[in-house]
Simulated scan of single mutants.
Amino acid sequence: MNPIQNKYDFVVLFDVENGNPNGDPDAGNMPRVDPETGLGIVTDVCLKRKIRNYVETVKEEAEGYKIYIKDTVPLNTSDKLAYAHIESDTERAKEAKKNKAVLDLMVRDFMCKNFFDIRTFGAVMTTFVKDSLNCGQVRGPVQLGFARSLDPIVPQEITITRIAITTEKDAANKTTEMGKKHIVPYGLYRAEGFVSANLARKVTGFSEADLNLLWEAIINMFEHDHSAARGKMAVRELIVFKHESEIGNAPSYKLFDLIDVKLKDENKPPRAFTDYSVNIREENLPQGVQIQRMI
């Protein structure tokens, strides 16, 4: 498959209702908050995890769509696949053993070709553990920033009770136990991302098919991730800017500034996506850039 030929920038709006979108382990798993502004935060790592999980769900380890960073699978287990593939080709193995640069390139190309998340986000595959395999480092064409809420959030700690008693000894003395649950009553978050056609062509081979799968995964990244902890979460908008060129026709920040998301009534706290208005000033769109609302 041929790499993409156009640069893209995109904005994602997603919301949470009565859930914890991204707990902070340094704060007892309370929702992440910027202490100076009170705005909620969801890390790029969290969002990439949702995208990986969706691709793994719909592709089910299909050829070219394995996931490198996943639960219960050590990185070196996946690294071994590249070396085993090269060893299976006698002629290529002989060539690789003569020249380390050739070996490194073969390994990198194999990992990019077979693992969607490496082809998309890149990966550090150098583990620096004795006798471990080294697949190098790959800089991916798709990058996401932290998501921030449009307005300050008010994290709440809810006390709950449960009838499932842990031990038989405790069951003899009580019928319920107490617990805690951290939620955000409502928050609308905005994340911004970038897709580099230049890196796709030079490094990973990220293709149009991969791009379409990425948009699909972003739109549906919370649909197969529902849990009691995260409550109701959904992607509300995916706004994509497509440049005519590989390098880009306008700075990303100028495109992001064209999107205004504001509360309709600033005198009451938001409790639904309909409490906001989303306005795109398309009349100020730079020449050579197209815009598309994917939802």
Results as ranks from 00 to 15, higher is better:
V73M: 15
P74R: 13
Y83Q: 03
K66W: 12
A84V: 07
S78I: 00
K80N: 08
V58S: 07
A62T: 11
N76Y: 08
D71F: 08
D79M: 07
E60K: 14
V73Y: 13
I86S: 03
I67R: 07
K70N: 02
A62Y: 03
T77P: 02
E61L: 01
N76K: 07
D79C: 02
S78A: 13
V73P: 05
G64V: 10
I69N: 08
A62P: 06
I67G: 10
A82M: 04
E60H: 03
P74I: 14
S78C: 10
K59P: 04
S88F: 05
E63V: 07
T77E: 08
E61N: 03
V58W: 11
D89I: 10
D89F: 02
G64L: 09
Y65F: 14
I69R: 03
Y65V: 06
A62D: 15
L75Q: 07
E61T: 00
T72W: 00
L81C: 01
A84K: 15
G64C: 14
G64E: 06
H85L: 00
T77R: 11
V58F: 11
K59T: 08
D71A: 15
A62I: 11
E60G: 01
V58K: 05
T77H: 07
E87N: 06
A82Q: 02
G64A: 15
I69P: 01
S88K: 13
P74D: 06
T72E: 01
E87D: 10
N76G: 02
D79K: 02
P74V: 14
K59F: 06
H85Y: 13
Y65Q: 10
T72S: 01
K66V: 01
A62W: 06
A84N: 15
T72P: 00
K59D: 09
E61K: 08
A62R: 13
Y83P: 03
H85K: 14
A62E: 15
K70I: 02
H85E: 10
L75E: 04
T77S: 12
A82C: 01
A84E: 15
I69A: 14
D71L: 12
N76C: 04
S78Y: 06
T72M: 04
K80E: 12
D79P: 00
D71H: 14
D79A: 06
E63H: 09
K70F: 03
E61Y: 05
V73D: 09
I67M: 11
Y68A: 04
L81P: 02
V58L: 10
K80A: 15
D89N: 13
K59Y: 11
N76Q: 12
A82W: 02
G64Y: 14
E61H: 01
K59E: 15
K66N: 13
I86G: 01
A62Q: 11
I69T: 09
I86D: 03
E60A: 09
D89Y: 04
Y68H: 11
L81I: 02
P74S: 12
P74Y: 14
I69W: 10
N76M: 05
Y68D: 06
P74E: 13
E63P: 04
I86C: 05
I69C: 07
K59M: 15
S88W: 05
I67E: 09
Y65W: 12
E63K: 13
E60R: 10
